[in-house]
Computed example of a mutant assay.
Amino acid sequence: MRMLPSPTFDLPAVGQTLMIDADDTLWENNHLFDRAIASFVTFLDHKTHTPDEVRDHLNRIEHDRVRLHGYGLASFRKSLVICFEELSGEVVTEAHRTEIDRFTALITESPIELLPEVDTTLAYLAGRHRLLLVTKGAEEEQVRKLERSGLADYFDGVEVLSEKHVEAYLELRHRHACEAATTWMIGNSPKSDVNPALAAGLNAVLVPHANTWVLEHEKLSDAPEGQRLLTVDRFTDLRLHF
């Protein structure tokens, strides 16, 4: 019997640099803050503002604060305190602070919940490409989450940025000697992961998350000529492209 040749598949080129976001790309994150905010809204128990109005007010506070004070639990905790004082008209007491601290402590005490097939996908990608974790926030908190996740060994480098903007990506290109044509930023946020990376001359992959933080919402930019923008349904779909 004549043997037919095995089918061949064109695999993507190896040896690219993949910059990968962490929160809500590798593991669940924003839903933990949502739980803390829901507990805060119940605790505030405002008599005229609806829960959605309280959340909108908190969003405005955070939007104004992160530009000056950055991200992380300390900044989030302070935003809750300010929101309480502004909406209640009361000065926060030690009892109030203790309760607010309890809400934020639940975030740090929650186990790391990896998104589906993240570990096996990273194992595959790490065998073919250089992986850099590129996240933003409080450095100690982000590094601790990475350690707890069990994913640290897949990455050739870790960058915790105060903000992800064009200048930050240009600096990363220089510091890690990245060839723009073979470097990709992968994440769930149009505002932080995709648009500024494209503006810095890199390629990008959007991995949408149903619960991306509202402050990370932004209209997706088009890829400039000579660059590429991909959108995948799930993190594991990266295996089809890399």
Results as ranks from 00 to 15, higher is better:
K219V: 04
G15D: 06
L125F: 04
G187V: 13
P224R: 03
F235N: 02
A138I: 03
C178A: 13
T48L: 06
F235G: 00
L238M: 07
E147C: 05
A168E: 06
R173E: 14
H176N: 11
M185K: 02
L220H: 00
D21Y: 10
H46K: 12
V91K: 15
L172R: 09
L68M: 13
K78P: 01
E167G: 06
A181L: 09
T120A: 11
T212Q: 13
R228M: 07
D193K: 06
T182C: 04
A123D: 13
E140P: 01
H69S: 10
R67P: 01
T98M: 08
E62N: 14
F103P: 00
I20D: 05
R148F: 04
L125Y: 10
G15V: 07
L106I: 12
E117T: 13
K191R: 15
V118C: 05
N59Q: 12
G15T: 10
L170H: 14
H49K: 15
R148G: 04
P208L: 09
E216K: 15
S39P: 00
T17D: 14
P12D: 12
Y154P: 01
E216I: 02
T108D: 08
V143T: 14
W184A: 03
E163A: 14
H217I: 02
E53I: 04
H63V: 01
E94R: 15
